[in-house]
Design a protein around this nucleic acid. Structure first.
Length: 489
RNA sequence: CGGGACGUAGCGCAGUCCGGUAGCGCACCUGAAUGGGGUUCAGGGGGUCGCGGGUUCAAAUCCCGCCGUCCCGACCA
């Protein structure tokens, strides 16, 4: 392969590599509006599969979908002091409608807590109305200063779950449960390992009691906050008068949770699995699991090969509701493009398995399967194709998670580390560093100032093979918490 | 908002210093051959050189102003 056809090597400039993959694989494009993004069909297909998988999990945990307005009265945002402080600087505000100046400006939702809990207040009277478990798929707007395709755009697609409960403990359990749902999805479907845990107070969601997060490591060793789940306490209930009559006859404010993941996950997918050839999509999320590239010289060969390919599609093909032995397969029958060019194109787009089908294969009743993740080639019999491809896809799915987890482990530091050494590490590519923390905001801010690293999470259960650190990384006082430090997006 | 770079065909760029017919690669269109890892040949279409003003016989090129984009910081799913 000619070197100039390769994508920018990651080591030299990860950002350039990332942009190139996103644009060339036709996942997204820049829009005429600065900071906004167009998601192309190729990228949206991945999002649709993410949506469906997540939605199934939400339904299984008893949540129902609903839809709330795009516009939020500005005064709603102001009711919760911390919330407005956190979000006001990055809102887009509508001041005119129908050619007239509005009496009260409308904020384009940066998140929907306020409007949703205002509605919850109308719907909840009794403890019998609880828990209220709602999710919405929507777009939100946050006026960020600097944007990046998928990772931080002015407008993005996401889901936000919002719940109301009768007790603190029930809300806390819900917060943790949904964090686990995210974790299962990211590892099981995206093959993207994450560290879960609680955010430090300085990184907490504006208006929350506690925020939990899934943190994934990208190939430049930076951390990506891939999903968050918040225990909102009674903060919003109190300002929106969301209260209910308890079983014993008294009144109490409800306890809320909210949790969300966004199209940022697609960026995470690219930065977790992409390589010098392009994108690699884990099979469960791949809009196309297998592409058949026909090979022929003469018209007769062409007819025979395409007919065989069509038979395979009829036998195995399915676009929806995958059943055992069926798969999302398509034939690349384009004329005038050599097979080699097709190989590179589908590899760039990340299709997990390619089938090469030519006259020589047909003569021996076989086909050649090529894995995208390892580029390993293997002939298979046409008779057992369904089983063989399904088995290969499931192996790719598993191997991708294993590979991503190994990479993260190799770039994590779990043993005790001095602050000098920590600074050296963060001066280079960085790492996930497991270290003690005295709990003071001063130490946290000082480290952030000096190394650009932030506390990603106070981890739950990860990194347990290391002995718990006893002293603060920065000041050396007794540690009150264990923290994962990393540079972040 | 501070620091840096850049705006020339859909994309990536050269040309700018030293003013003189608008160029290259990829992509696209037509035709032929080719076809088991990025084909080749021939022909073709596509540009108010970011915008406005100035200097000049003549401006992509020199001067002034503006706008925009990207990168690095502060902010963030």
């Amino acid at each position: 392969m000619a070197d100039d056809k390769k994508l920018t090597p990651r080591a030299e400039d990860f950002s350039a590599w990332y942009n190139e993959v996103v644009l060339k694989a036709e996942l997204a494009d820049y829009s005429p509006v600065r900071g906004c993004m167009v998601i192309r069909p190729n990228g949206y297909g991945i999002w649709e599969r993410m949506q469906r998988a997540l939605d199934d999990k939400f339904k299984a945990t008893g949540h129902q979908n609903a839809y709330f307005p795009l516009f939020i009265p500005e005064s709603f945002l102001h009711r919760e002091a911390q919330h407005v402080e956190g979000f006001a600087p990055e809102t887009a505000v509508v001041t005119h409608g129908g050619g007239k100046k509005l009496e009260e400006p409308l904020v384009v939702r940066p998140t929907s807590e306020t409007i949703i809990y205002a509605m919850f207040a109308k719907w909840v009277q009794s403890y019998r109305d609880l828990p209220l478990l709602v999710n919405q798929w929507a777009n939100v707007v946050r006026w960020e200063m600097r944007t990046r395709l998928f990772l931080r755009t002015l407008e993005f697609l996401w889901q936000e779950g919002h719940t109301a409960h009768a007790t603190h403990d029930e809300a806390e359990a819900e917060t943790r449960r949904m964090l686990g749902v995210y974790r299962d999805f990211m590892e099981g479907w995206m093959a993207m390992p994450v560290v879960t845990g609680r955010k430090s107070d300085s990184e907490r969601f504006a208006g929350a009691l506690r925020t939990y997060s899934c943190e994934a490591m990208m190939q430049d060793n930076k951390a990506l906050q891939a999903g968050t789940s918040h225990n909102l306490g009674q903060n919003f209930a109190k300002v929106f008068d969301l209260k209910f009559q308890t079983e014993s006859g008294g009144m109490d404010f409800a306890w809320n949770t909210s949790w969300g993941v966004s199209t940022r996950l697609i960026g995470g997918l690219v930065m977790t699995h992409g390589d010098d050839i392009g994108l690699r999509i884990p099979p469960l999320l791949a809009p196309t699991e297998m592409v058949i590239v026909p090979i022929y010289r003469t018209d007769e060969e062409r007819a025979a090969v395409l007919e065989a390919a069509d038979r395979i599609v009829q036998r195995l093909g399915a676009w929806e509701n995958r059943e055992p032995g069926r798969l999302r397969v398509r034939v690349d029958a384009r004329e005038g493009i050599k097979p080699g060019a097709k190989y590179f194109e589908w590899e760039l787009r990340g299709v997990p398995v390619r089938m090469e089908l030519g006259p020589r294969d047909l003569a021996s009743n076989q086909a050649v399967l090529v894995r995208r993740d390892t580029r390993e080639k293997r002939p298979v019999s046409l008779d057992t194709l369904g089983e063989d491809v399904a088995e290969l896809l499931s192996r790719i799915q598993g191997d991708m998670l294993v590979a991503a987890r190994e990479r993260r482990e190799q770039n994590s530091i779990r043993e005790r580390i001095t602050y000098d050494r920590f600074r050296e590490v963060m001066d280079g590519p960085g790492a996930f560093v497991y270290a003690g923390w005295c709990g003071s905001a001063e130490c946290e801010a000082a480290i952030k100032e000096e190394t650009k690293a932030t506390i990603r999470v106070l981890p739950d259960e990860e990194f347990r093979s290391a002995e718990a650190p006893t002293h603060c990384l920065k000041c050396g006082r007794d540690a009150v918490a264990e923290a994962i430090w990393a540079k972040a997006y």
